[in-house]
Design a protein around this nucleic acid. Structure first.
Lengths: 147, 147
DNA sequence: CTATAAAAAGACAAAAAAGGTCCAATAGGT
DNA sequence: ACCTATTGGACCTTTTTTGTCTTTTTATAG
């Protein structure tokens, strides 16, 4: 249970790829797709979603492509994941008031609320810049080529 | 993202129902289903899963039915959820060593590991008995009839 | 031993979500 | 104009979810 979808994984990989490019440089869908091992057309949709939410900037026509719209140090993992998979909601009953009539009665909801809060806190505490740095001195490029 | 499935919700409701019955009393599928608002045949499968994992005991034939196999105070929410939905794995790459080649390289995995650990800790910290008690003196029966 | 009552097992099926593909349209550069 | 690249939308396939239905097994009562 509680799995991140493939789309979510792709999304993170794509953002990580972009974050490792020189600031301002534009990358093509095909380029990112090949490097990160993501189906090209599917990635296209993911990037469109990112541009809609403002995390990524896109430019059309010759010389166009994608680039991060903001500094990777200011983008959290939570933002990335929520941009693609929607808000963290470990239980439907937390969607909104009144969705579940048992809201105010049942203890289970309070527990799921705590689960959500913890997940959000952890994901909000990690930036893309930190993630892209990797650890123990691995060449970052090895990451994306390893598949 | 990260939603509990309907099956998981049903499972919790069913266990909660059983935990409110007098110790040793057997409940019929139909009885639980109606009271907790769960499709009868679907609940049947859920209870079968519970008996297989040993959380619930079942008896066939006339006078048969289901009952908790253990004291509700000793059953955690984690056990219930994992019995039905499988282990908490917020990322496929945590399934086993080597499933993801990026395991030892990528920081993302470490983050998801923390997420999993937190979820597990929270769910393992709540017992069915606590949940069934509800709060603020609500009649527990109101819970299951409210739908 | 037979009728009845209940869970168990397994096959089946509809609906929704996940995971993509394809193509026409649009916008930008040369 | 023409090429290039993203955008948008329609479409499709596979898997998962959410069930149902039927048959079998086990237990009890008469």
């Amino acid at each position: 249970m509680m799995e991140l979808t493939r789309k979510g994984e792709y999304a993170i990989r794509a953002i990580l790829y972009l974050s490792r490019q020189p600031r301002g440089k534009l990358s093509l869908v095909g380029e990112i797709a090949e490097s990160a091992g993501i189906p090209r057309t599917f990635l296209s949709k993911i990037l469109q979603q990112f541009t809609r939410t403002g995390l990524v900037a896109s430019f059309r026509g010759m010389g166009g492509g994608f680039t991060l719209a903001r500094d990777p140090a200011g983008i959290t993992l939570l933002e990335v994941v929520e941009a693609i998979e929607g808000p963290v909601l470990p239980n439907r009953c937390l969607v909104g008031e009144g969705t579940c009539e048992r809201d105010r009665i049942c203890r289970v909801h309070e527990v799921w609320g705590r689960v959500r809060d913890e997940i959000v806190a952890i994901l909000a505490g990690v930036t893309i810049e930190e993630l892209a740095r990797g650890r123990e001195g691995f060449a970052v490029d090895d990451l994306t080529r390893s598949r």
